[in-house]
Structures are given as C-alpha cells and as structure tokens.
Design a protein around this nucleic acid. Sequence first.
DNA 1: TCTATATATTTGTTTATACTCATATGAATA
DNA 2: TATTCATATGAGTATAAACAAATATATAGA
Lengths: 110, 110
Amino acid sequence: MKKLAQFIKILGDTTRLSIIGSIGKKTRSVTEIINDTGLSQTLVSFHLRNLRDAGIVTTRRDGPFIYYSLTNLSLIDILDELALLAGLKTNFFETSQVLSQGKIVSVNRR
Amino acid sequence: MKKLAQFIKILGDTTRLSIIGSIGKKTRSVTEIINDTGLSQTLVSFHLRNLRDAGIVTTRRDGPFIYYSLTNLSLIDILDELALLAGLKTNFFETSQVLSQGKIVSVNRR
DNA sequence: TCTATATATTTGTTTATACTCATATGAATA
DNA sequence: TATTCATATGAGTATAAACAAATATATAGA
C-alpha cells in the first residue's frame, strides 16, 4: 500500500504533470522539456529525478543529451481517466501535448 | 492542470488509500471504516473530509450514521491500473477488500 | 431533557515536499 | 586543454500536509 501511495504521490504534482505532459508518448531531451514547459533547468532536473526514481520515466544518453521517455505509455491514458474523474474534459492529457513553438534557447545563460 | 494534481495528490496517501480500499465498491459507515482499518476516529474523519472535498466520496445520512461510498466506482479499477504501473500485483485493490472480522466496538471510549 | 453513540472540527506540532541558488559533472568542440 | 553546452547535485528555506489531542455537534432513546 505504501509503495502505491508513493507512486501516486509522485504523479500528484503540477510541475511533474507538466513534465509528463511534455514528454507525452514521445522522447524528449531535458532542454526540450525546459523550453516546452518554461520551467527552470534546476527545477526540471529536480523533478525528472523524482520521476526516474519512481520508475515513471527512463533515460537514454546520446552524446551530451539525455532523452527521457515514459516507462509505460499507458500512463497517459490512465491520467486521462483520472482527469475525467476529477471533472476535467476528456483527453485532457492527450490534447495538452500541443507543443509550444518558441525558438530553442540555450539553457545556460550565465 | 492544478486541479488534476490536487485530485491525484488526495489519492497519494497511505491512510486515504486504506480508507478507499475499505469502502471499495460498497457503502460503509464511519464506524465500519474505523473497525476495518484500525485507524483512529479522528484520523478517519479527517481524511474522509479530504476525500469528500475532492469529490472522491459522497455521503448519505441515515439516523446517527453517515454512509460513505465512492462517487465513481471506476476509481477502484484505475487504482488497480496504477498499482500495476507501480510494479505491484494485479487486482491489488480488488483483493485488498477482504474485510477484517474483528467484532464491532464502540468508537467512543472516554 | 439527560445520556450515550456517531461523527466532525479546531488547534498545535511534526514531518515531508517543493523550490531556489550555487556549484558540480560530463560531453563536445575549438 | 580550455571553453561551452547539457544536465545533475547539494544545501538551505518556505510551505504544506499528516497527525494527535481535545472538544464540539448531531441523533436517538430512556
């Protein structure tokens, strides 16, 4: 029971839901997620670690990039079902995957 | 997004999952939930309020008793799907509904 | 109307979680 | 090998959530 609660708890956060929505059923680098969500690099990295520790996402390194994807794509469908229960519109998550069109900007601006 | 996160957050707690599991697809009074879960009256009441505020359970009063039931029974199935993703066995929630057989004891023992 | 039972609420405390800032690591390239 | 880009980590702080103890409310029955 504790393990299930912990798993669900990881899903119950606005920031992490945004990240999951950005990844969707695709594969995305951290920079893509940052540009897509508008969240800070540190914050995205912080939450990706939680998601990874929970087994919700997996990673693949390709040169300097680390690509994240959902461990189980059916998570999107389950989140949609939950959104329905929460009184939100159908395909809340599927349709939330319209990507922002902002140009890609370097993450490191020091 | 915030509303969904809040809804999921309510589900991501061991105590509340126990209460939901106790209610299951049935209808249960607070006393039944207390005896079933072994949790204190105050704690059960506290969490039932959260669950009710989130729209996860609904109530019906019958004399001195207040009966709780799930607003949407499919929640049990969704929780089972989540349990699968979390790496737990199938029908985790369905099978967790074996009721304790302890005799019913008064809640107020002051 | 007094008492017992069922359930809810309030308050204070502790624990957990999200976030920011600063810094570190690791890979690629000049 | 120095620098730049991509990503991660650690420490500190603020906020929120869970819990316990005490008390309140509501219903039923004597």
